[in-house]
Amino acid sequence: MGYAASESGATEVASALAIKILIAGGFGVGKTTMVGTISEIRPLHTEELLSDLGIGVDDTTGVERKTTTTVALDFGRITIREGLWLYLFGTPGQDRFWFMWDELALGALGAVVLADTRRLRECFPAVDYFEQRGIPFLVAVNCFDGARRHDPSTVRRALGLGALTPIVLCDVRDRESVKDVLTNLVTYAVKGTFSST
């Protein structure tokens, strides 16, 4: 790559890598909680400014003519070592922010689709989205207190998942549980990567 010009930073640039993982699922399923459980940075969500919603991109329009919308976009970071990070992005739930998903999903290693067994159908859109784009994903069933402990095969059938898509039970408030979800996802996503190279 063309970094020859930047003297001392060159080798660092070549090896610095941030890996993106998405956390998707319906409203209230535990996305923000999951990111917060594992992230090492506190500013969990940033008010994202979307000024050209539905009106195309127009960089020359003045401030006063912009449509200003904010959306809470969760993101969290896990530092593996200097120059290697995992970033978790919670996908905005509302339909009108679908276009943000495309940007978030581009180049992502994979996605966690969080599911609440009491409202399973709310993760259909996320499952469809990742299936259509060939983005590796797993389904993590957030076991809310009092929720029936679902049998993964029931969830698989209800969501119409292929036999290979991992389904894991988790508690998004529990660090070990979230670590387990992420290691499962990384392993699943990377497996496909190696076999194709």
């Binding site: 890996i19 896990i78 530092t79 290697l84 290693l109 670590k179 290691t183 990384v186 990377v190 194709s196």
Partner: peptide
């Protein structure tokens, strides 16, 4: 593309890093 950035070594590093958390 992710396929070009993640090799076996990085994958191991990520897994071990996650387990250490």
């Amino acid at each position: 593309p992710v396929t070009q950035t993640i090799d076996e070594r990085i994958y191991r590093e990520v897994l071990n890093g996650l387990r250490r958390l």
